[in-house]
Simulated assay, not measured.
Amino acid sequence: MKGKAGIRRWLLQNLGFATAVLLFIVLFATYNVLHPRGFSSAVAIQNSNETVAIAFVAMAQTLPVLLGGLDLSVGAVMTLTNCVASELLYGSPAQILLGVLLTLMTGAAFGLMNGCIVVYGRIQPIIATLATGAIAIGLALLIRPKPGGKVDDDLSWALTNSVYDLADTYGFADGGNAWWLRPFADIPVPVILVLLVAFVVWVPFRRSVTGRTVYAIGSAEGAAYMSGLPIHRAKIAAFTLGGFLAACGGLYLAIQTSSGNADIQQAGAYTLNSIAAVVLGGTSLLGGVGGAIGSLFGAMILRVISFYFRILDIDPLLQPLIEGVVLLLAVSFGAFRTLRVKNQLDLFR
């Protein structure tokens, strides 16, 4: 009985996340049934490559939303780091590693700047990040006035294909033929990268004092302050981690396309889609409820919907309409829980 009661309580407390997981499973399973080639490693690799960037940006957006705000610069930071990576990811292994570190540090530094402006400038996140996003795009245009760049071919191939291709490219595990690697050989490397970042970066952060403080701020900042929690540190850490995750998206986009592109429309689209993914993943726009793993599933749902457009040959003119209806339904579902409670404190119990 206790087990059933515990599961029921967990489902009630994480209804948005559970719904996102179920919706993704249903949509993705149906998509593979309808796909002319069915489920295959090649299709999974293609799908995962198209999902990674939005997944990282959605995870980045989760942090300010948990605080009760929005970050309108995540798409621009992703674009900036994409351009930075397109300049640095070639040469010797040491040079490539340095390029990766500098790219991620660029995103984290931009997030740190956002956090400091919000905390010490006492400016609403949506206003501060609207301005810093424009700065990020300006810097991206200085670095990459025209699309282009150079990314190491082996790196690009290895990280955008299967585990077997990764092992074969870099010559470990007997070139991918080792017996212990065979059960995992067809797994897309992009999936492993996203899960690695989610469980190595996000999960420890959420369980830390700083991470718990982020949730407390989103639930009731006044109460968190009176409890003596490190409010300023948590806000700065949240924006810094958000910048790091956005940089992960920009880094992977450069690896995937072997180039950089300071595309303003792309930056705006990724920012808006990141907000939609966060809502789809069960994170409350009021703050304090949700998580980056849910946003990851929200991003995957968005991409699966776009996959349907290809296999069902839907008129391109109708695609924005369908996406808009889906997102409106998702936002409405997220707001329903808010509207049906009499006491807002019930949202956080």
Rank of each mutant, 00 (worst) to 15 (best):
V325D: 03
A85E: 09
L286S: 11
V163C: 01
V331I: 13
Q124C: 00
D263V: 05
E323Y: 15
N32L: 08
G288R: 04
Q95R: 10
V21G: 05
N14C: 01
C116V: 15
G75F: 14
Y120N: 02
A134H: 04
Q95W: 11
W10M: 01
V100C: 05
T30M: 10
F244R: 00
A223I: 00
L102H: 10
R337K: 14
L63R: 04
L34E: 08
V278K: 08
V52L: 12
Q266W: 15
T132G: 09
C83K: 09
S86G: 03
T79N: 01
S274M: 05
H35Y: 12
V57Y: 13
A185T: 11
N273K: 12
V304D: 07
S162G: 09
A173V: 02
S41K: 10
T132Q: 09
C83M: 07
V119W: 14
K235N: 05
L11S: 08
L280D: 07
L155G: 01
L339Y: 15
S48R: 03
F184I: 00
W10H: 05
D153N: 03
L101G: 09
V74P: 14
G324H: 13
V201I: 15
N47H: 11
N177A: 02
M300A: 13
A44K: 09
E50P: 02
G38W: 15
V200L: 14
N161L: 02
G290L: 02
Q266E: 09
M78C: 12
K150F: 13
P320H: 11
Y225I: 01
A42H: 13
P320C: 02
L272P: 10
D174I: 00
P190A: 00
S274Q: 07
Q265A: 06
S219M: 07
R349F: 06
M226R: 13
A216G: 08
N161W: 11
G121C: 04
A237K: 05
I217Q: 02
L155P: 04
E87Q: 14
M113Q: 05
A58G: 07
I236W: 14
T213P: 09
N161A: 02
F17H: 02
G91I: 04
V26Q: 06
K2E: 14
S219C: 08
V331Q: 04
L286T: 13
L72G: 04
N47R: 01
R233Y: 11
A247M: 07
R310Q: 12
C116D: 04
N114F: 14
L72V: 06
F56K: 00
T19H: 05
G107D: 08
V325C: 10
S48P: 03
V331T: 13
F28E: 05
L112V: 10
